[in-house]
Design a binder for these strands. Structure first.
Lengths: 148, 148
DNA sequence: TATAAAAAGTGGATTAAAGTGGTTTGCTTT
DNA sequence: AAAGCAAACCACTTTAATCCACTTTTTATA
């Protein structure tokens, strides 16, 4: 499972290193590369195997409703296959760089089945929001269920 | 169960010794290492076995709501697998050192299912707060239930 | 209780791996 | 043919894993 945060840089070419602790998971997940998709103003990284499951799920969504068709084309349309180079970096396509506003400082965050790529600014904001969430009854309830 | 408090140091590389009385518990809990997570401005150490339970609970949280996705990414993002070296020390990742403000003097505290890592300053403050809590009605009620 | 032996705890040196930035080469596209 | 881009290559810096030496504390035993 993907866990932990790392702080890195994205270079002018749009290359981002995959942290060492993620590499085995990626390889075991179907190859030397990942699928990148957009969500929550950051990028979600999936192993090939897990992505296949997601695609199957997307296929099973009804296409009757225009909203579901829109969801499908935005989510799948925004997904890219990114393979690793010899230094274990992925090249992030310009459209995804723009979406997540990746410029210089970036953050990689493991979230179990997948990991996320954030700009440093947005990640800091996300942490601030989390602090605010800690006075939210619903959130506190979920935390208490974790058994910490 | 983890119990008792020990005062130690963290060296320049970020290494921290595991007290002898914790070692058997850790080994019995699934291996020669622990999972470290962030909470309450200190670090929580879990055995692998217990961490697996927590992780299952995290996976069962709904991901519909943005607040719950945030909870997951901040909590799992703050979790690291720390294995012991031959001297039974763990290396604490820089992001966790920063979070808990570990610099030189640190405190390890057993709290039954897990143990905690504090900076000495924060630990002392925590004890002061405990003194204040002893005039709190709710806290006194819980204490009376303990059967001391 | 004195002493030896073992275990716990600390610090530093060495080596291997991770991470970063840049250059070159060879495609593709217009 | 030239421009743009990505893949591959290379050089370098930083960081983490491993190993070793030593001090302190605990335990065992005479």
């Amino acid at each position: 499972m993907f866990r932990g945060v790392s702080f890195h840089t994205i270079d002018q070419k749009g290359r981002v290193i995959i942290p060492a602790r993620f590499r085995g998971l990626i390889k075991d997940g179907g190859g030397d590369g990942i699928m990148l998709a957009t969500m929550d103003k950051c990028l979600f990284g999936y192993t090939y195997d897990y992505w296949n499951i997601i695609e199957q799920n997307v296929l099973s969504i009804s296409n009757k409703d225009e909203r579901y068709r829109r969801l499908r084309r935005v989510f799948i349309g925004g997904a890219f296959d990114c393979s690793c180079d010899k230094q274990y970096r992925i090249l992030i396509p310009p459209s995804l760089r723009d979406y997540a506003e990746l410029e210089k400082e970036i953050v990689l965050v493991g979230v179990l089945k997948s990991f996320e790529v954030w700009s440093r600014e947005k990640w800091d904001m996300e942490n601030d929001k989390m602090k605010d969430d800690l006075i939210d009854e619903d959130v506190l309830k979920e935390i208490s269920k974790l058994g910490l």
